[in-house]
Structures are given as structure tokens and as C-alpha cells.
Design a protein around this nucleic acid. Sequence first.
DNA 1: CAAGAATATTACCGAACGGGAATAATATCG
DNA 2: CGATATTATTCCCGTTCGGTAATATTCTTG
Lengths: 92, 92
Amino acid sequence: MSEATTIPYGKITTPEQLGRLVRHQRKAQGATQAEFAALCGVGVRFISELENGKPTLELGKVLQVLHCLGLELSLGPRGWPTSPSPSGTHPC
Amino acid sequence: MSEATTIPYGKITTPEQLGRLVRHQRKAQGATQAEFAALCGVGVRFISELENGKPTLELGKVLQVLHCLGLELSLGPRGWPTSPSPSGTHPC
DNA sequence: CAAGAATATTACCGAACGGGAATAATATCG
DNA sequence: CGATATTATTCCCGTTCGGTAATATTCTTG
């Protein structure tokens, strides 16, 4: 697996990390920020700020956008392995 | 496993769900909202609102509080199994 | 049950969110 | 490289966040 195909899932400890993943997923789905904003029912500004890791965004809107991306957050103890395998195989 | 020992981890799709999990973890650690707020560097008000599922809270502060709880969010496609087993055993 | 502990709510107030539009800046692509 | 597309930033403005303290309400416990 090359650097170019970064795993689009993973741990979220900062708004920046979340933003990077959101942008990656959006682009993977071939949508512009404007299209995506309309789809999610938020403003373009929000999408831009989210993707750029702005820490003061509303939690509920963030979750709303994740839902639109077909993504889901899961909460667990720090360090526990959760990243789905990019090849689709199971962790074990 | 009885009703009293609800799994404290899982999927997060709404602020309410997150709030319930946060409250559960805080109580499991035997801390009051005030103690916990001081520990996390936020106000008591924020903890109360977070635990009650207020949707407009700042994302960055939420992540900060989760860090203090020794918790971590993980992002993946909807439906993918991620809940750690409460008994400590591996998913498979 | 009553006292005390814990939590929710209110007040004050400066900072700032976010929609939508406009525009500046940056990225893309033939 | 230049034209176009996309994204970031700015503007306006009503609404509200969140710290802190006070207080109302609810929960816990002996």
C-alpha cells in the first residue's frame, strides 16, 4: 500500500484529524464542498471549517455531516484497535 | 450480564448517545461533575450540558473531555463492529 | 425522612458560531 | 500555461457558547 492511498479511517483525538478524514471521504465520493454542504443541510462555510480542523464547531452538526458521509463514530478506551482493514479483511 | 452493567462503549450518532456514555464513564471513575470539570480544564456547566446531550457544544472541548476520560473516538463506515468486549476478550 | 451532596439552571457578558453571499486565494486540468 | 473550478476568507448580524457564581432542583444516604 502506497502513501497515496492513506487509510481513510482511524482514531480521532483532534479536530484536525477529523477534518482530514472528512475531506478524504468527501473527495473519495467525488463531491465538492458545495454539493456536500447541500446534501448535508449545512453551509459551505461549515464544511470548509470542519475540514480545516476548526475546534469550535457544533458537535451536533459534525455528527450530522458524518452521517451524510456514511460514517460513524465509535467510542472506546484509548489504544483499543478499531480501524477497519482497508482490504476488507477482518482484524483476525 | 445484568441491565445494571450497561456496556459503556459503542456507536455515537447523536449528542445524546455521547452524553450518556460520558456520564457513565465519569461515574464509573467515581468523580463528580465538579471534580471532573476541574480535571479536564472546562467548566461544570460544560460537563452538565455535554452529559445531557446538548448538540451545540464545541467539538474541540468535547474531544478534550473524552481524552480526560481515557476514551478515544474512532471513525469508520457505518455498521462496522467496533465495540470492545466488556469482558476483555477479543472480538474473535 | 431530612440533611447533605450532586446536578441543572439562571444571570452576566465578551467572544464567536454559522447561513448566505461576495470575493480572494488556491487548485485543477486540458 | 491560462481558463475554470474549487476552496478559503470576509462581511453582516442574530443567536448563543461557556466561565464563574449563585441558586433551584434533584438525588443520595444514614
